[in-house]
Structures are given as C-alpha cells and as structure tokens.
Design a protein around this nucleic acid. Structure first.
Lengths: 114, 114
DNA sequence: CCCTAACTTAACCAACAGGTTAATTAACCT
DNA sequence: AGGTTAATTAACCTGTTGGTTAAGTTAGGG
C-alpha cells in the first residue's frame, strides 16, 4: 500500500511513466516538454497525474521556473527497488549453476538433448 | 497494460507478493507453505490469486506434485526489469555494477561465473 | 468407493487507477 | 489591468485489483 517500495514498483508498472523516466534520463524537462510525445494519446491533466505518481514514488522532483515546472530524475529514488532486485542476483546465479551442472552431466554421459 | 515489463513491476508492487518471492528465494515451496504466514491476514484463494499474478509476470513457476503445487522462482523473469533499472545505474552505481557485469557474462556467452 | 487434503474457480464487492472535460491558479507580457 | 501561457485541481466515469465466501476439481489413503 503506502510503503515506499510498493509505490516505486507501482509507478514503474506503466509504460507511459517509464517513457517519461527515459525522457528525463536525457536531462531536465518541463511538464509540457514531457507531455509533448503523449498529447495525441492523452490530455495534459493525465500527464500531470502520471508525474505526480512518479513524484510520490520518489523518482522525480519538480522545481518551479516562472510558469513552468522543471522535472528531474531523483536518483536516490531508484535505490530501494534496485536493492530489492539485487536480492535475486543470487537466485539467478544459483539457477545458472544448476544449469551448468546439468549440461555437464548431459555431455559427460553423451545423452541426446531433450 | 499487458506488456511483460508492466506486468512484472505490477507484480512487484505488492508487499505480500514480494514476501512470497523472498520466501521462494530460500527454496521450493508448496502453495500451503507459502500461504502459511499470511493465513491470519487473508484467505487461501487470495494467496492463489497472488501466486497467479507472480506466475503471469514470469517470476514464478508451478509444477504439480500429487495434490500439491510446488512453486519456484523463475530467475529469467527478473531480467527485463533489472535491465530497465540498469538504465538508471548512475542513480545507484555500486549496487548495479556487479549485476551489470553478471548479466553481460550471461547474455554474451555461457561462461562459468567468477 | 467415499473421504480428506490441497488447491482452484466462480461470483461478488469495495477501493483504487487512469482517463476525461471544465474550472482554477500563477506568472509573465504588453 | 487584461490576456496568454503553463500547469494543477475538481468532479466524474470506467475498468482493474485485492479481498471475500462458497462450490468445484484432483489425487491418495483407508
């Protein structure tokens, strides 16, 4: 629910928002600039909402510049989610090890491949 | 909506499901074994649903063993999401660095790990 | 052959997500 | 002051999520 990690993953679970993050990884952008590629598919308020989700997830910050709001990536926001996934690096390795052992046993016994 | 990455992140955006993954990182478990810590807070059908979400997200596999269903982590399922987050490695340098090297070694050729 | 164990499916419900249009705020420009 | 630009807030609608209970399936055991 309102725990940080859930909010972060929920924010990432939308292609529009991921595209916005990708845009921001190229540098600061105003709301209109971020919105531009999406305005054929959705309205400006929808974009505002997406940005708010990213903000509450801690992935984006907004600063005021006259009428415009400038958005930036907030790198710390990614940390927790990266660390969670890192937990499964071990699992990946182990499964690969098992595969390696299996392949070895197969080649040693000269069995036909499944 | 139904793109793989969105489904994976959506699956991860729930503390119950993340706890289930953590449980599975300790090894194979049946549905009842996975359910056990949650049965004070929710019913068994709710657990079944969560597992189905994890399955459709490609993070978990189920195999039949008599009446029981045995669940396992599906390490490849994490790959795409890890790769997306790697795009933001400047955000979280050290933690992703080792993972990046690992993924490269896996995808480029099947060499044994260091 | 029924009984129980281990799950899943069905039908339903409240809450929330993602979108809309219309109205509102805020800052700048003559 | 009034108008324009930039963005947000409000009110609403619809589909999905996460939970429920009750009924259904499937395999093994006495």
């Amino acid at each position: 629910m309102p725990d940080q990690l859930s909010q972060t993953f929920a924010a990432l679970a939308d292609p529009t928002r991921r595209a916005m993050l990708t845009r921001l990884s190229a540098g600061t952008a105003s709301v209109s600039e971020i919105a531009e590629p999406f305005l054929k598919q959705m309205s400006l308020p929808a974009v505002t909402k997406h940005l708010k989700v990213l903000e509450r997830a801690g992935l984006v910050t907004k600063t005021r510049d006259a009428q415009r709001r400038l958005c930036d990536l907030k790198p710390e926001g990614f940390k927790e989610s990266v660390e969670f996934l890192e937990q499964y690096r071990q699992a990946c390795e182990e499964s690969l090890d098992r595969l390696g052992v299996y392949l070895e046993s197969v080649t040693k016994q000269n069995k036909p491949l499944p």
